[in-house]
């Protein structure tokens, strides 16, 4: 598994774990905050965006601010 794929997997795991705790939608900053000890901030942001392209994450927006969620929680 490449580094990019590994990070995307970590991001999805993060969402799966936290989606069970009540919230289903998260800001990019929430994810970056938790994973930035292990990965570069830019790499995490890129991985999250890549996940939206391949459909493993979805954007959710109020129109003024944007969040991310798993497709099943959209």
């Amino acid at each position: 598994m490449s580094n990019d794929e590994e990070l995307k997997q970590k991001v999805i795991e993060w969402f799966q774990k936290h989606s069970k705790e009540g919230h289903t939608k998260f800001y990019m900053k929430d994810v970056v905050h938790d994973l930035c000890g292990q990965y570069e901030k830019r790499a995490i942001q890129k991985a999250m965006n890549d996940c939206t392209v391949d459909g493993t994450l979805k954007y959710w927006s109020t129109g003024s601010s944007t969040m991310f969620c798993l497709p099943e929680n959209f």
């Binding site: 965006n49 954007y59 959710w60 927006s61 109020t62 944007t66």
Partner: peptide, 12 residues
């Protein structure tokens, strides 16, 4: 309001 964001590949 809130929900769907865009078209494929777009977040806004």
């Amino acid at each position: 309001h809130g929900g769907i964001v865009g078209v494929k590949g777009y977040g806004g």
